[in-house]
């Protein structure tokens, strides 16, 4: 029993309203990441310790960028109603995301020995990667929900925004990492 729920939209279709809402939220979240990044200089200056694992950092970056490509392909497939390709790409994205989370886990394991959270650089590293990996986890979870919803249907229909939104969120996480990576690994 669904009673009349005001559904407004005289001139804007729901897809556009949803997109606008998501973009506004991303703007807001971007503001949070700017706050995070700006605190780096305060807490540990611009120096990066030598012990940091450059190979790991670069691999994480490559992994996340690649997952953005698969996410992009999932969205394109969804728009073109290519359901099987979309599902594969969603799975691939999630897989790379999970791999990324494990990568960060390994990064933390190493970091605990060289710069634990009670040091300046450790504080920055754990906060930045911690907040970011939370976003990644939300992304994986969202993609999972979307996959769960679209796994059996034939055409994308009303679920287009679900795919698009999850993918946009994933790209946003990627953009955040684009700035976190040099901030943590490359500054001198």
């Amino acid at each position: 029993m669904t009673i009349h729920v005001p559904n407004v939209n005289h001139r804007f279709d729901p897809l556009t309203i949803n997109r606008l809402g998501l973009w506004l939220f991303l703007v807001s979240d971007a503001s949070f990441f700017i706050a995070l990044l700006s605190s780096r200089v305060f807490v540990s200056g611009t120096s990066t310790p030598d012990e940091i694992n450059q190979v790991l950092g670069l691999s994480l970056t490559v992994l996340l960028l690649l997952s953005s490509l698969t996410a992009y392909r999932a969205e394109v497939a969804a728009e073109n109603n290519d359901m099987s390709h979309m599902k594969n790409m969603l799975l691939a994205t999630m897989g790379m995301g999970i791999l990324f989370v494990f990568g960060v886990g390994y990064e933390w394991y190493e970091a605990l020995q060289h710069f634990p959270p009670s040091t300046g650089f450790g504080t920055v590293l754990f906060t930045l990667t911690g907040v970011h990996v939370t976003h990644v986890a939300t992304g994986i979870l969202t993609l999972g929900f979307v996959y769960f919803r679209v796994r059996k249907i034939e055409t994308i229909g009303d679920n287009l925004f679900a795919v698009e939104g999850a993918v946009k969120w994933w790209h946003f996480v990627d953009v955040a990492w684009v700035f976190i990576y040099p901030t943590l690994y490359l500054l001198k």
Binding site: S68, A71, D174, F179, P182, L187
Partner: peptide, 17 residues
């Protein structure tokens, strides 16, 4: 680094998002 970062972000925002 900021310039490269902004360029990368722009690519993703414009073409992926």
């Amino acid at each position: 680094l900021l310039i490269v970062g902004l360029a990368k972000a722009w690519l993703i925002i414009q073409y992926f998002m």
